[in-house]
Amino acid sequence: MIPVIGLVVGVIAGLILQPTVPVVLQPYLPIAVVAALDALAGGLRAALEGMFDDRVFLTSFLFNILIAAFIVFLGDQLGVGSQLSTAVVVVLGIRIFSNAASIRRNIFKA
């Protein structure tokens, strides 16, 4: 429960404060959002399957975002930034889809 409340507080704070993002970090934003979606889908599925865990959820959330950003950074340095971004999006996208399918099965039993 605590991390969910924390996330909501963070979202509200983000909407109210509207801080500006440094230009350096801007290429990583789309990937970070996709990684966050993946962690959210995973957490929701775990909760529905009765094995949700705060710490796993938060660490997967945090590390998803950090690693996704790092891969994009690495790609930029190697000159294959857009390709690596695509790779990250494909992998995370597949995971989001499969998790979403499990969530659907859990909720609708179909």
Partner: peptide, 24 residues
Amino acid sequence: PALVVAMLVAVGLGLVVTVAVVHL
């Protein structure tokens, strides 16, 4: 203490993701 840390990390993550979405 673990709960407090979890809360802080969660607030931070929520903030980061919201800012990213708003910015995008």
